[in-house]
Each structure stands twice: as C-alpha cells, then as structure tokens.
C-alpha cells in the first residue's frame, strides 16, 4: 500500500448525498480478476450518456475542476461492499474523499487502499462546496500527522478523526495482513481454548 502523509491539491465537488458504490463502479464492470483498470469506469453512468459521450456538466468532466480530492455530500459509499469502488477512485487518481458521513464498509476499503476518507461537519462541508464552486482553483492541504484539513488562503480548517492504528498503517504503508500474520501463535492458542464451540 502507498504511504500517505500530506497532500496539497485542488478538489472536485460532487454535491450529491447517499452516493452508493453501484454509482462509483457499476456491477457490470466487476468481472475483472485483478485490481487494475477500474479507474476508467469510475462513475461510468454519471460521466457518460447512453451513447457513450461525456456529460460535460458532471463535475469530474468539467474542465474547471481538477485535483486528487473529491468532496461529496452526506453518506458516501453506501450499499455494496465491493472494494472495486475504492480501486476505481484510486485508479482515477483520487487520494482523499471528504464527506460529512461515510458508510462503514467503504471507509474500511478506502483505508485499506491508501485512500483517506475525511469526515467533516455538515456546516464545514457546505462552506467547502461553496468555496470550491466559487473558486475551482481553491487549494486544500491535508496533513495526516496533525489530522487537519486546511483551505489555503481562507483560514478555514477542520480537524478529523482517524483510528490511531489505521493512521500508523497509512503513514507507513502497512496493511492489516502484515499485522495479523505476526499474531498466528496467539490465534492458534485462541482456537485451542475457544469456549464458544462446546
């Protein structure tokens, strides 16, 4: 997994609530057996119309917006557990998703792929949307070490929570497998004394 420490980038606003993982990557693209190539199909049915042409009004297609941060409305990533959604967002070049709420499974999947989900308040999110929409060149700075998100030149900033273990993993590029396979003796001992299986 790629390490994550700080990021300075413009952001793409996607002001839609309850974005489910079927929108992020539709099921018909889940037939691959590796993790590559999903970025091409991220938000496929929102980015392209029926005849396969780009929809110019969709924020990811709008040339005025760019960057590796996506700002989305409440409850991002609900629905299917498909990690392909995280692979698609990462594949597209995103490194941070900001929302006022994330679905559980998506959040775990994102963190397992070096994609940082940043949860901010509804009020902060509203301000952020307005700022980016009025000035698409707005630069955001994410600092994982200090757990802070700053909107440059405005003084607007927010701290965010992250599990300390997950933070360590992201900063160092470790994943849970590294940790778990070092616990095998304990796991074997647990299996032997397991009382819940009489």
């Amino acid at each position: 997994m790629e390490k994550f420490t700080t990021l300075k980038s413009k952001a793409i606003p996607l002001n839609v609530a309850n974005i489910d993982t079927d929108q992020i990557i539709p099921a018909r693209f889940l037939k691959a057996t590796d993790k590559k190539g999903f970025g091409d199909n991220v938000f496929k049915d929102w980015r392209y119309n029926e005849s396969g042409d780009l929809k110019s009004d969709f924020p990811l297609n709008n040339p005025k917006y760019s960057g590796s941060i996506l700002v989305a409305a409440n409850n991002f990533g609900c629905g299917s557990s498909r990690e392909h959604a995280a692979w698609a967002l990462v594949g597209y070049g995103l490194k941070v998703i900001i929302s006022s709420f994330f679905a559980d499974i998506f959040k775990a999947n994102a963190l397992n792929n070096g994609l940082l989900p940043i949860q901010v308040s509804e009020t902060f999110l509203e301000k952020l949307f307005k700022l980016i929409e009025s000035d698409p060149n707005t630069i955001l700075t994410v600092n994982l070490e200090t757990q802070s998100l700053t909107v440059n030149d405005t003084g607007l900033s927010s701290n965010f929570d992250i599990d300390s273990y997950k933070k360590t993993c992201l900063v160092n590029g470790y994943d849970d497998i590294d940790y778990l396979i070092n616990q095998k003796e304990k796991i074997k001992a647990f299996e032997l004394q397991k009382t819940h299986l009489p």
């Binding site: 557990s81 990690e83 775990a108 397992n112 599990d163 994943d175 497998i177 396979i181 616990q183």
Partner: peptide
C-alpha cells in the same frame, strides 16, 4: 457482516479481522 476484498485476504491469511467493536 460484509467485508471488502482486502479483508477477504486478511481472513484468508489469519482467519481473523482487525476491527473496532460497533
């Protein structure tokens, strides 16, 4: 409960998951 593919790999490797109690 449902898990992502990274977690599928974790269970393959250790029959365990690292989780915070909901």
């Amino acid at each position: 409960f449902g898990i992502g593919t990274s977690q599928v790999a974790q269970v393959f490797a250790s029959q365990c998951l690292l989780l915070k109690k909901p």
